[in-house]
């Protein structure tokens, strides 16, 4: 069993929901990322999703777009994100880590080389926003060779037949995109999410994590009531950005990030199992 699948199983046994925070590797600077990852875990994160900076992040709203721009300006690239995972693993061998990003940096590195390096640094999964099931055969073969999970998106617009073909190629968990839009949009509808999750559960027993639009303890609690986990991206990236823009010390960056994650943790833990 992969580390990601194991983590979801362990949480389910405890009647708890997975909290998956997202930050961009190298935002606001190269030195802050690994300490942030540890701080997020200490504050209650179960899985870390590390964004790979890309020049053209087509699915991101303004908050995460700017994070990609800051990260690129600080010099962070795919190989730096992999190096950060290696450094993180020096102190934390348990918390699953996945990279989230776009096809081109991975394609340019080469699928086989990426898989080898990812396995060597202790990465657990990959989520590429713009590689749908139709295009995934090449990268999946390499990820499976090294026992790594490939995390797929399912959207509100995904028809039933596609849901079946997606879950057949997925492992680890399914990432349900809670709304039609880019990251950080504000029109989350928990009841609509619940209906879609019920449909997806007819096709798979994989854990379902929900992202896009979850920004605080309350929205996490509402979505977490029917999901197996929640992903928090823009809200977290935003508090980090605001602190950095205000000239915060690294200590303060870690503190504001940890406070938000701890608050969302308490929202999730308030769900009666």
């Amino acid at each position: 069993m992969s580390k990601i699948a194991g983590r979801f199983q362990q949480l389910a046994a405890q009647g708890r929901k997975a909290l998956v925070p997202y930050i961009v590797a190298g935002d606001p600077n190269l030195a802050s990322t690994v300490p942030l990852m540890h701080a997020l875990v200490a504050a209650g994160a179960d899985i870390i999703e590390l964004g790979v900076p890309f020049s053209d992040p087509m699915s991101e709203g303004p908050v995460i777009q700017k994070a990609h721009e800051r990260a690129l300006a600080s010099g962070a690239r795919l190989r730096d994100a992999l190096a950060m995972v290696a450094t993180f693993r020096e102190q934390d061998s348990e918390t699953p880590v996945l990279l989230m990003g776009y096809a081109n940096p991975v394609e340019h590195m080469g699928y086989a080389r990426f898989a080898d390096q990812a396995a060597a640094v202790g990465l657990d999964g990959l989520l590429t926003v713009d590689i749908p099931p139709e295009e995934v055969a090449g990268v999946n073969a390499e990820l499976h060779r090294v026992g790594m999970d490939n995390i797929f998106l399912i959207a509100p617009t995904t028809p039933k037949a596609r849901i079946e073909s997606i879950v057949n190629q997925a492992s680890g968990f399914i990432y349900y995109v809670a709304l039609k839009g880019v990251t950080g949009a504000g029109n989350l509808d928990a009841e609509d999410v619940a209906r879609h999750l019920a449909h997806i559960r007819e096709a798979t027993t994989l854990p379902l994590a929900v992202g896009f639009g979850i920004k605080d303890a309350e929205s996490a609690r509402r979505v977490g009531a029917t999901a197996d986990g929640v992903v928090v991206g823009s809200a977290l990236v935003d508090v980090i950005a605001q602190a950095a823009a205000g000239g915060a010390s690294q200590e303060d960056l870690l503190r504001v990030a940890a406070e938000l994650v701890a608050s969302i943790r308490s929202g999730l833990d308030s769900i009666a199992s």
Partner: peptide, 20 residues
Amino acid sequence: AEGRFGVYGGKFVAETLMSA
């Protein structure tokens, strides 16, 4: 049928757009 010109082309977009 997959929209490929040799190895080029295809449909590399986010899942939300695939059915459109």
